[in-house]
């Protein structure tokens, strides 16, 4: 395992370094980043003072080195709007987004995987077409519209669930469904094509010939062998959920990172936006790394192949 994993780890580090560099250049898309960092009410003298104190009057390379050094020390700067360290602001919101993303992932797994399996096994059944229609619909549903529709139906008309906000388990239900619907569709489709792929293989035919029933075939053989594509798509889905949270949290007034992102853009609190983007990229890269490690656990062939 060491060579393969060390290689992947090195790649991940390069990617993180690249993301930081990219964000550094995005800051300078309009020239002087000072204007992004000062409060809107700042006077010209304030801006000059800020530029010097942040070291933004120095050569670009020096600025870049300083920026990287700050990032390495986990110093993401201070919000001048709220006068709090960015790390603290993000830490206070993070638990909410983790809750929401977990809820969404649960919805996606619990509905999506069995749905995909069913669509693959009963491929010819007329009900399968209806299920496929549902999956395709879920895939094209804008999260902000499905969220608003749910608020309208279950929050306002039926009054079953709190329309927005946070504080109880009931508050989590609708946002999780809204956020998880798209991933659910992805899981259903991936699981379906993975199982269909497996079904055509020789071991399935010989198991059938030995008289193995459908139930045992699925639990003993198919699920494990179809896991690889599911794991690899999970890495992608988790980062999608983080991004999707921006809109879902705004719809449901859920006080997580997504809502923080939107509020920070509105109040021109650029340092916070930058911190969230770096965190999002860091999570994406780590999750991808984790998925690669998991493959080699699930499928020993990958481990062996890397040695050769």
């Amino acid at each position: 395992m060491p060579v393969f994993l060390l290689q992947r780890f090195g790649q991940a580090l390069v990617a993180i370094f690249g993301v930081m560099t990219l964000v550094f250049f995005i800051q300078r898309l309009t020239g002087d980043p000072t204007y992004l960092l000062v409060p809107e009410t700042a006077t010209q003298a304030d801006i000059e003072a800020m530029r010097r104190s942040l070291g933004l009057d120095q050569p670009l390379l020096v600025q870049y080195a300083n920026y990287l050094w700050d990032m390495l020390r986990m110093d993401f700067g201070r919000s001048y709007v709220q006068n709090i360290a960015v790390v603290e602001i993000i830490a206070s919101r993070l638990p909410y987004t983790v809750q929401l993303a977990s809820g969404a992932l649960l919805v996606a797994f619990v509905i999506g995987l069995p749905l995909g399996l069913a669509m693959a096994i009963w491929r010819k059944h007329p009900l399968t077409n209806a299920l496929m229609g549902f999956v395709l619909g879920a895939q094209s549903m804008p999260t902000f519209w499905s969220g608003i529709l749910m608020i309208m139906i279950f929050g306002v008309w039926l009054g079953w669930l709190p329309p927005s906000g946070s504080g109880s388990f009931a508050h989590l239900i609708m946002p999780s469904i809204a956020l998880g619907l798209l991933s659910m569709a992805t899981y259903a489709r991936i699981a379906r094509s993975a199982v269909i792929d497996e079904l055509s293989k020789d071991y399935v035919r010989s198991a059938r010939a030995r008289g193995v029933g459908t139930g045992r075939l699925v639990t003993r053989h198919l699920i494990r062998n179809s896991l690889i594509p599911v794991i690899s798509i999970s890495a992608l889905e988790i980062s999608q959920l983080l991004a999707g949270a921006v809109i879902v949290e705004t719809v449901f007034a859920w006080p997580g990172l997504g809502q923080l992102t939107v509020q920070s853009v509105q109040s021109r609190d650029f340092v916070v936006v930058q911190g969230i983007v770096l965190l999002g990229a860091f999570v994406t890269i780590s999750v991808n790394l984790l998925a690669d490690i998991l493959y080699s656990v699930v499928d020993p062939r990958i481990r062996k192949g890397s040695r050769a």
Partner: peptide
């Protein structure tokens, strides 16, 4: 690789912020 490792909406938002 670098562009694809930032969630797309977040990348778009930070650019709009600038």
């Amino acid at each position: 690789d670098i562009f694809l490792s930032i969630p797309a909406i977040l990348l778009a938002i930070i650019m709009v912020a600038v």
